[in-house]
């Protein structure tokens, strides 16, 4: 299967993963204002960035200042790494003679 064939389902997965949290957030806000209960689910955790540098600093700074951006970066990094690793592993497995194609479903 080529990457292009995987692109459509992946795009749908990403679209859902970005849309549902927004709906959920709207629902929770509406629920909280209706009931007067504010359910605080966010982790009120700040990272001390004074001793950090490079990638660690970048991650920590984003985590401290923009959680939505942090969520977008996490989701995209996982998607890109997952796809690239799958592609690379596939090449290695092919070289080892473990290539797969359509199979007959034996029970």
């Amino acid at each position: 299967m080529s990457i292009t064939k995987l692109a459509a389902p992946l795009a749908i997965a990403l679209a859902i993963s970005f849309t549902l949290p927004i709906i959920n957030h709207q629902y929770q806000t509406a629920y909280a204002s209706e009931t007067g209960n504010s359910q605080e689910t966010e982790l009120k955790h700040k990272i001390d960035t004074s001793k950090l540098s490079g990638v660690d600093y970048w991650i920590a700074d984003m985590y401290n200042n923009d959680r939505v951006m942090y969520a977008v970066v996490v989701t995209l990094v996982m998607a890109v790494l997952g796809t690239s690793m799958a592609f690379l592993t596939d090449l290695v497995l092919k070289a080892l003679g473990l290539e797969v194609s359509k199979i007959s479903h034996r029970e």
Binding site: I16, L20, E42, L43, R67, Y70, A71, V74, T75
Partner: peptide
């Protein structure tokens, strides 16, 4: 994918 985004947005 949904869980990854929501948990990351909550800093987890």
């Amino acid at each position: 994918a949904y869980g990854c985004f929501t948990y990351a947005a909550k800093g987890r």
